[in-house]
Amino acid sequence: MSTLARTSAATEAVAAPLRSQTDVVVHGIKEMITTGRLAAGSRLPIEKDLADELGVSRSSLREGVRALALMGVLETRQGDGTYVTSLDASLLLAPMGFVVDLQTPADSAHLQAVRRVLETESAALAAQHFDVAAVEAATAVLASVEPLLDHPDEADHDTIMEADIAFHRIIAHASGNPALEALIESLASRTIRGRMWRAISVEGAVRSTHREHLAILSALALHDSERARLRMATHLLEVEDYIVTHPIAGAGSSARDAQ
């Protein structure tokens, strides 16, 4: 090998980041899935054979499998082996909720902005598919809080927020896009603190939000995608503007926020 070739090879070796054995396992199994060798629901080869194939120790293989299980890619069944999950978007995107939980209060407005972008398009898509069952489900959710709108107490606010999440969840599901639905789910319940604070501290906010929900539902029932998009955007901008001007509203977390 010439001096130039040796120098080039050495430079590449230094520049290339060293992968841990766990990374090798994660990458190897991911490649098996993406190339079609392993499909959703497939059982992984026995531990010894898979470790030999990937060129790693069995302990490293177990670490990699655990990492992929946390990602929702694999599941270990006691006494039965390790399987590829359904690879459903809700499983694979679930860790997004953990990322959201780690954001600082200063990032609350950014999260709400992302939620607005996603839910605005979700509403437009949902309008194309919003059937009678979806209309009835959304109508029932909104009707359930009507007796609480004028003078809600603390317990009523919890009920109202649960209904709020349920209403938006119906729309996300009706979008027909599981990945979009999963992303919205990871943000919606974790941005509830700002919405709750606005409902408690702003006079008439609960009634105003209810009117906005009814307007969104009307557009969805009419299958009017553009109107649904605009109604949802206006609705979520109200919350976003409040969080921007009241950053304390997005601070902290609670057990309910993580549900």
Rank of each mutant, 00 (worst) to 15 (best):
Q103M: 14
P105D: 09
A106P: 07
A106R: 13
A106G: 13
D107A: 15
S108D: 11
S108H: 08
S108E: 08
S108C: 06
A109Q: 08
A109E: 12
A109V: 15
A109F: 05
H110N: 10
H110Q: 12
H110A: 15
L111E: 05
L111R: 06
L111P: 02
Q112S: 14
V114D: 01
R115Y: 14
R115L: 15
R115V: 03
R116H: 06
V117S: 09
L118H: 01
L118K: 01
E119Q: 14
E119H: 13
E119A: 03
E119L: 12
E119Y: 05
T120N: 00
E121H: 15
S122V: 09
A123G: 09
A123R: 06
A123Y: 03
A124V: 07
A124R: 14
L125D: 01
L125F: 06
A127H: 01
Q128N: 10
Q128G: 12
Q128E: 14
H129Q: 13
H129M: 05
F130H: 05
D131T: 04
V132N: 01
V132E: 11
A133Y: 03
A134H: 07
A134P: 00
A134T: 03
V135R: 00
V135S: 06
A138V: 06
T139A: 10
T139Y: 02
T139H: 07
A143N: 10
A143Q: 11
A143I: 00
V145G: 00
V145S: 01
E146L: 05
E146C: 02
E146R: 14
P147M: 05
L148V: 10
D150A: 15
D150R: 15
D150F: 07
H151P: 00
P152Q: 10
P152S: 11
P152E: 08
D153G: 11
D153H: 10
E154A: 13
E154K: 09
D156V: 12
D156N: 12
